[in-house]
């Protein structure tokens, strides 16, 4: 497999608690990698390491390396702002800015200094199409984004991530608050998007991981218990813990 992100012996401490205990994992390019595990397993922390949002937390100590295209992004030389322009993140709760649909998507490009109306319209409409939202909002782009439904808001957040043309998309339980139809639309979009992007999907919903991810990782209490192709993990897991979690015996 073609490795995009290589995580090497990563240890994270919050104050004195070890949240991630020596994680080693290679994440494949142009694939969907699913992270699953019960609450407190460290999967969201891992996401916040990759996009360096962990910088906003106090009392954190990080050891180990996270290589994206062979460059250690934990290096002090790396500027987290430019890193985050290469890595899009979609959060569990969609938080549109208090602006119009159009301006929500145009926010990122404007930060980069793109102000030409025609160019903006083109990239905004492109990313709305990729997020499977275009048909629902094309006639009301100047409506406030906060008036959209939860599922639409989440696809808006996906679109506003895509507009930055990232290489990697991180999704932290993007469907946890959504109905099955909205969830299906997001999944459909993701399956299409993996052709261009490397996708990491954190989900509590093991069925969702099974449905759309190519590789699956199971975390438990800060350790990576099992990692492999989704088919292997779900049909023939090597660890008893994984089997118990997937079959719903705990979690």
């Amino acid at each position: 497999m073609d490795v995009k992100i290589k995580i090497d012996n990563l240890r994270v401490y919050f104050e004195k608690n070890e949240i991630l205990k020596g994680i080693k994992i290679n994440i494949a390019k142009n694939m969907i990698t699913g992270f699953m595990g019960p609450a407190g397993s460290g999967k969201s922390t891992l996401i916040s390491i990759i996009n360096r949002m962990i910088d906003f937390e106090d009392n954190v100590k990080i050891e180990g390396r996270v290589l994206i295209d062979d460059i250690n992004i934990l290096d002090k030389e790396i500027n987290p702002v430019s890193l985050r322009r290469r890595i899009g993140t979609v959060f569990a709760v969609p938080i549109p800015l208090q602006r119009s649909i159009f301006e929500n998507i145009a926010y990122g490009p404007r930060l980069k200094g793109i102000n030409d109306k025609i160019e903006l319209f083109k990239i905004v409409s492109d990313s709305l199409k990729k997020a499977f939202l275009w048909d629902e909002v094309k006639d009301r782009l100047d409506m406030s984004a906060t008036k959209l439904s939860g599922g639409q808001q989440q696809r808006l957040c996906l679109a506003r991530t895509l507009v930055l043309k990232p290489e990697i998309i991180l999704l932290d339980e993007p469907c946890s608050g959504l109905d099955p139809i909205s969830t299906a639309k997001i999944e459909e979009a993701l399956s299409e998007l993996k052709k261009e992007y490397t996708i990491v999907l954190v989900s509590n919903n093991t069925k969702q991981i099974a449905r759309i991810s190519d590789y699956s990782a199971f975390f438990y209490l800060g350790e990576l218990i099992e990692y492999g192709t989704t088919e292997k993990v779900f049909t023939n897991p090597s660890q008893k813990k994984t089997e118990d979690y997937i079959s719903g015996k705990f979690g």
Partner: peptide
Amino acid sequence: VPRSYREGSYAMGATKWQ
């Protein structure tokens, strides 16, 4: 102002002042 607003902006590659 909720922290999540700021996080959304940072995640899109905004600097602190932006």
